[in-house]
Each structure stands twice: as structure tokens, then as C-alpha cells.
Design a protein around this nucleic acid. Sequence first.
DNA 1: GTCTATATAATGATAGAC
DNA 2: GTCTATCATTATATAGAC
Lengths: 201, 201
Amino acid sequence: MVSIEATHQGSTRDRILIAADDLFYRQGFEHTSFAHIAQAVEISRGNFYHHFKSKDEILDAVVERRLAFTGELLKQWEVQARDPVGRIHLFIDLLTRNEKLIVRYGCPVGSLCTELGKLEHAALEQAKQLFSLFRTWLRRQFTSAGCRRGADIWAMQLLARTQGAATLASALQDEQFLGREVSAMHAWVDDVCSRFASPCS
Amino acid sequence: MVSIEATHQGSTRDRILIAADDLFYRQGFEHTSFAHIAQAVEISRGNFYHHFKSKDEILDAVVERRLAFTGELLKQWEVQARDPVGRIHLFIDLLTRNEKLIVRYGCPVGSLCTELGKLEHAALEQAKQLFSLFRTWLRRQFTSAGCRRGADIWAMQLLARTQGAATLASALQDEQFLGREVSAMHAWVDDVCSRFASPCS
DNA sequence: GTCTATATAATGATAGAC
DNA sequence: GTCTATCATTATATAGAC
């Protein structure tokens, strides 16, 4: 994975996108103004319009960037774990790795889609695809694990469970609950894959 | 339950609260301006400040109103169903009764808490109590159903599952998924209460 | 490519007539 | 209790110098 994230280098356009992504997540899209992003990137407000025509265009680019990173992440997991069940566990562990952020701000995907839905923002269609990426990938892992029937159901259930855990944990600021849910999800995956895997593969 | 909701009667203050509640839910708190509310209530913008000192004060009153309605709803369910398991099913059915709205705008409680968290709004503390009301009530039902151990765990799991179902269903605009999750939750409750209920009560 | 103005619109909030 | 008129602030967005 290209580590543009951690550095202060990169083109101004990239730095805008990185700052905007972070602020859209922590403050929400609408509540984040150009002034906020400008302060983070340390450029003037007027400079934005050389790189993006409008705030909506920044959002589009942010979502595109997230889609690209998510795709890379999913590829990584396929290398890190050979067996599909192990890969699903890697997905669940994402909640643990980003624990602090999730307890504070919820899931970046879920909260963005919820906000864009209320704003009736056209970018929701693209943001939804973040879910679709995870959904398709998880479905493939469940199928590979031997769950020929209902792989999409299991994928959606797991996805929903992560959303519920993130929403409730962040609303109540309860990281112990998040940890318990993560453990329960790990156990659930093992249970599902052992119970519903076709004996004759 | 007092049916102020359905009527155009009531004091101006109440009509403001009803319209604000609806708009905060559908459009989000920050995205809803006085102009929006004024148009819905059919009063002038300046008239607001006779009833509320600020927008935040309207939010506080809206949350207080929701807390009161939620309390009434929980009381109703205790009358409608004698057995605790039946009461839990009534809670789950709330997702079905509000299906259209939830698929479109998500859960009113979860999405409000998520937004207020990102805005670092003080009213989050009150909004959280909406979850606490459901949590305490569900815990009591699980306990009454015989689940002496882990009643709070079951309550939180169910609460989280409704949040996940609402978030994902609204993000993907998938009401079939919501329906499937509701069915699965009904089955899950019966399973939990039969497996974990103490034999000797 | 970056900056300093500036235009324009919308917002929350106030003052005062009726 | 409701209205109109207005203020101060903030927001997105533009124009043009360097």
C-alpha cells in the first residue's frame, strides 16, 4: 500500500484529499468547511478552486480515493491469509485496529452514507459502493469457505453487525462493548463456517 | 398516547417541535435551518425566538420530547404483551412498522447520536439516553424471560443489531434485507430465551 | 500554483412595530 | 403572539495580482 497517508509530502491536491477525508469523517461532510480544510493543509481558501471546482468535487474525489484504498486493503488480506475464514477474521479485526476512532466517530463508511442519504447527495451512489466492495469480497470468502448457500446473507449479516457495533459503541462511547462484539463476531464466523460448510466440496 | 402527532392543532411551540423532530430526522440537525422549519410550521423565522432562545434549545426540547414518547411506547408494550419474550418481539417489530422511513433515513436514534457526536454537540448526552431507555427496558425483559446471566449483553446485542440493520438497509436502500434481518432477530430472540433461560426460576 | 481581495447567498439571532 | 426588517457571521465560490 502506498503510504501517502503518513507523510506531509505529496501534491497539494493529495494533501487536500487526505485532510478532507479525515475531517469529513470526524466532523461530517456538511459541517466541514473550506476554512477547516485550509487550516489543516495550511493553504489559503482561494487555492482550493485551482484543484477542485466545488466542495462536491472534493467529496467525489475523497470517495474515489477511499474506494481505491479499500480495494488495496482487500487485496492485502488475500495475501495475509490463505484460508477464507482467516480473511474474514482479518476483516473483523479492522474494528479492533481502529478501535479508538470508531468509538469516537463511528464507522467511516456507515456514517458517511447516513449523512449523504439525509442530504440527498448524489455522491451517496458512489459511497454505497464502499459497502458493495466489502459485501462482494466477504461473499466470496464465505463461498470459498464452503458456504455455498447463503454466502451473501452471511456477508450482509456480518457487515450489518459491524455497523451496529460501531454505531452503538460510538453513541455510548463504550469501547468494552465494541470489544465484546468483535469477540462474538469472531466466534460467529467460525460457527457459521463450520455448520454450513458443504461436507462435500 | 396523546395524538398531537397527526393533527395540525396544538400550540405553536408544539408544532415547531413536531416539525423540527421530523426535519432533524430526515435532513439531519445541522442541515435543517430555521427557514425549513418555518416553512413546515407556516410561521415567520422571527417568531421562533419567542418560543426558543436558540436552535440548540429546540434540539434539547426535541430530544426531551422523544424521550417522553419513548417512555410511553415502552409502557404501552408492557400492556400489549404480558410475556417478556412477546414484548421483545414488539420492540423488533418497530423496524417493520417504520420500514419505509428506516430504509430511507435510517434509525432516528442512531443517526442523531452519530451526527451529534461528530458535531461535538452537548445534546449527545441526552440523545444517548434514548438508547439507555431501550437498553434498560430490554434488559428487564430478558431478565424476566429467565435470562439471569447476560441479560444486558443480550439487550445490547439486539440493540446493536437493529442499528446495523437500519444503517445498512438505508445505505443500500434495501428493504428486503431489513425484512430478513427482522425475521432473523425474531428467531434469535426465541433461541436465546429458550437456550439461556434458567430452568429453575 | 498560490495568494489576497471580493461577490453572493444563507444562516442564526435581534429589535421593534402591531 | 406574530410579524417585518435588519444585523453579524459564515459559507461557497470568483476575480485577478504575483
